[in-house]
């Protein structure tokens, strides 16, 4: 198996920094704390996630 097939070229991190993705982060910093781990039930790593689509419950979990 290949060791690391997703090596990042050096520019990516700088590019992301400059692209101001943080604009979205800045405003939600206060609430982002609890959000970060609010991923839907990761329980069984590979199969635990349920894509509750559209207008459904999972979005309650996906709150910022």
């Amino acid at each position: 198996m290949r060791k690391d097939s997703s090596r990042t070229k050096p520019g990516r991190r700088d590019f992301l920094k400059l692209a101001s993705i943080g604009a979205v982060a800045a405003g939600v910093a206060g609430v982002a704390g609890r959000k970060a781990e609010a991923e839907p039930d990761a329980g069984a790593q590979r199969s635990g996630y349920r894509l509750t689509h559209h207008v459904k419950k999972v979005y309650e979990l996906a709150r910022f």
Partner: peptide, 23 residues
């Protein structure tokens, strides 16, 4: 392959833009 399953009883197809963003 990624281990993502659709919730039971959910009639919406998975290729909705919201679902893909969530993936």
């Amino acid at each position: 392959r990624l281990g993502v399953a659709r919730a039971e009883g959910c009639p919406e197809p998975e290729d909705h833009a919201a679902a893909l963003c969530e993936v």
